[in-house]
Design a protein around this nucleic acid. Sequence first.
DNA 1: CTGAAAGCGCTAACAG
DNA 2: CTGTTAGCGCTTTCAG
Lengths: 343, 343
Amino acid sequence: MRSSLKDVAARAGVSARTVSNVVNGSARVSAETRQRVQEAIDELGYRPNLAARSLRAGRTGIVGLAIPELHSPYFAELAGLLVDEARRRSWTVIIDQTQGDAEAERRLLTGDGGRVMDGLIISPWALGARDLTDTARSLPVVLLGERSPQGLADRVAVDNVAAADEATTHLLAQGRRRIAAIGLQPHLANGTAEQRAEGWRRALRRAGITPRPEWELAVASLHRTDGARAMAHLLDGDTVPDAVFAFSDELALGALHTAHARGVSVPQDLAIVGFDDIEDGRFSNPSLTTVSPDKRQIAQRALQCLADRIYSPRNDLPASDLTIPHRLVVRGTTDPAATAPAH
Amino acid sequence: MRSSLKDVAARAGVSARTVSNVVNGSARVSAETRQRVQEAIDELGYRPNLAARSLRAGRTGIVGLAIPELHSPYFAELAGLLVDEARRRSWTVIIDQTQGDAEAERRLLTGDGGRVMDGLIISPWALGARDLTDTARSLPVVLLGERSPQGLADRVAVDNVAAADEATTHLLAQGRRRIAAIGLQPHLANGTAEQRAEGWRRALRRAGITPRPEWELAVASLHRTDGARAMAHLLDGDTVPDAVFAFSDELALGALHTAHARGVSVPQDLAIVGFDDIEDGRFSNPSLTTVSPDKRQIAQRALQCLADRIYSPRNDLPASDLTIPHRLVVRGTTDPAATAPAH
DNA sequence: CTGAAAGCGCTAACAG
DNA sequence: CTGTTAGCGCTTTCAG
């Protein structure tokens, strides 16, 4: 049986109070007593029971992270950064995968299944932000990507329209005119894809080009397969584009794979820009030009938002809406000169 | 303020006991009472407090997953599968990244910082398995990869020697004779790399080839950069290999990147085999031949082991040592014919 | 079928 | 500086 604080107290011949003080360093304890208590702790292998502590404190020290899927490099990287930053704040992260399922997202937000988390960072996918109405009042929530219309939750995201505009403008600057977009997701309530499409259209129009609807390619998800399929579709069309802006690096890598398999040379015949700056893109052949959001800052800011709410005495903090910086990283899929090995 | 079970009881005009029964379906409650209680629950937005429940039950429903890093595709995939399988068992997963730091691994195992987890799945890196001695008695532990010499913890892993042997034998069958190995990690206590090296040596010897020590390339970590660097080193050597067996897909992809940048054509001049079967390898150019461990089975078995121990009344279960099946997936980096687009 | 009450392990208010 | 004790919210034994 595991030993409790009481056992330690008995063994050291002191009261529970004193043991608690030693463990938490909360009050002054004589060096001698401290020593005796510490010995008892070591001998019994005592470890505080966090469930009891949480019950007492009303806080669990656990924050939730809800993402569509962990195996996507972008989310994996982000999750890794969040776990690290959380540890720095002595928080633990529990991860849930929603698989883009509305029910799963809702369940997390409404806190069904009990209150474990002190706060939740969620990257909504299936769920529209308005579905958050009931929720955010009871649980501090940070939205990644999607803005809450009622301002009920904090939000941390890059400026997707501007970023997509930059990516497209870069392609235009390379002399490309027939620029397709891969990655629309009309079936999702999540507005990110639409914002990127908007930036793409905006840049084209500014260059005097009318965006072709048949070059706005919808995808079921953001995986490499979807990008590969979309690219194949484009290559089978009447007019073949000379550039592609993919809304994620995975889509871009899938497209690159198909181009390669079909004998289309990149970047000569086809330029490609992705979004996310995942590690794979730095080592693909050729390496991938991409929009790089500052992921570490996303992680830091998201946790800061949670901390503000969790430790704030009053819960009338206005919702913050943080825009995270991004930059365009030019590599081999748009620049023939950029063939140097990565790093 | 959040409402507790007592509030619900008061509101419904019943006792706490009855509310508890309704929530857990633990005893027979008249339909009418159940209805009234349910209404009270809905009106008050009651959610059970898991800290209290855990305190009572002596279990938290949380299992820990300790991996070196989440941003590695292999670990990300595995973590995703584990999270899914855990949910199926109504468990929650907390993830810790050890960064291959011995202190971090030890801290997790000794349960410093309190008892939150009902069990721990750990992929040890810095820590030798013998460091587990003190630990596994108090906390159910499953080791991924490393075997515990004292048999104090369950272990789930592929047969690394056999797998490496197969990979190397495949290269030999393609007519390759100058086969290098990338991925030794003499600085780690973790024995996985050494096992793979052993399989590589064994296959070479069987073919009458003496393994060259200078072609056993050590790496600092298993990332693409390390693979890229190792490949560069090989290409700069006196004799250039005609094949490479990399101990991870990331290393292999880094090597592929360097080969491409240096104008070495794959698979004609250089064949490459990786290990892990991460998604990126299916879409690289050319796609990557690799050893594919059954990751879902790893996840399932690991959780099954934990379940057995957590729910077992006695803690004298013998340590199980499960070997997970793997298979060699032949793709473009060893087979010129395999250029068809993925999927 | 339902109520009353003990107690899980810990912290902190109160007393000494 | 240290002991005593109430109570966090829940489950469950014991009565009724």
